[in-house]
């Protein structure tokens, strides 16, 4: 193990570290991606009905938006600590915290997207006999897609970053590696985990941008079934 020199001298960049701990790095990355994906998906599943509810009953807009904004201002460290009595040391705790944080961005962006649908498009669809569900699914949603995807991208990128704070309960993906490396000032591990974390966020953002391009609303409308 003469090549392990950089581990002994505690260099910032250490090829030997990446080689010998690749399994640990992969596991942490997989956990990180898993927590992020589940959080954003649940966040969407909660935010969507909330946004529809607010749209149907504008009087609820103040309380709902106020509450999600309030949640957003709770420091992440406090949020994860406060959820501990309810969830114990589990990934569900971190996911719950991250879902609560994502709501602000997601609800606002879904609402903004739906609000931006031109009234004429809505009228035209109604005139063609579209019911409320079909109107939402085939007309409003595709037209709201750019704002919706912008929200999903923002929420995903911040969720990737916030997941690291989950390391206080040992469920922080790459954050765990950072936390573990701190007591021994293990530079290579802190740097590698941090860089991977930022890379994850960038890759996720680019992937979602690609998805958004693929789902370009205009092509969708053209390929969708004609009105009846």
């Amino acid at each position: 193990m003469s090549a392990a020199n950089c581990l002994v001298t505690n260099d910032w960049i250490c090829g030997e570290y990446l080689r010998t701990r690749s399994e640990e790095l992969t596991d942490a990355t997989v956990q990180h991606v898993g927590i992020t994906v589940v959080s954003v998906l649940i966040g969407l599943a909660v935010a969507f009905p909330l946004a529809l509810l607010v749209r149907a009953r504008p009087r609820l807009a103040g309380p709902v938006l106020g509450l999600t904004t309030l949640l957003y201002t709770i420091p992440s460290l406090a949020m994860f600590s406060l959820l501990l009595p309810f969830f114990g040391l589990s990934a569900a705790l971190v996911v719950t915290g991250l879902v609560l944080y994502s709501l602000t961005i997601l609800v606002r962006n879904i609402l903004a997207g739906l609000d931006a649908v031109p009234a004429e498009a809505r009228e035209a669809a109604r005139g063609m006999g579209y019911g409320p569900a079909r109107l939402l699914w085939e007309v409003e949603l595709p037209l709201a897609l750019p704002a919706l995807m912008a929200g999903i991208r923002m929420a995903t990128v911040s969720t990737v970053a916030l997941t690291t704070v989950g390391s206080i309960i040992g469920r922080g993906g790459l954050g765990n590696l950072i936390e573990d490396a701190l007591p021994t000032f293990f530079k290579a591990q802190v740097l590698a985990a941090s860089v991977l974390c930022v890379l994850l966020a960038v890759v996720a953002d680019l992937l979602l941008l690609g998805v958004q391009r693929l789902l370009t609303p205009w092509t969708r409308i053209r390929t969708g079934p004609g009105g009846g």
Binding site: M154, A161, T164, V165, E179, F185, F186, K187, V190, A201
Partner: peptide
């Protein structure tokens, strides 16, 4: 601003603490 969102505060603090 977008780049700022992608960088974990915890990671930056940790990097400072091992320097």
């Amino acid at each position: 601003s977008n780049a700022g969102r992608a960088v974990p505060v915890f990671a930056v603090l940790a990097l400072f603490m091992v320097s």
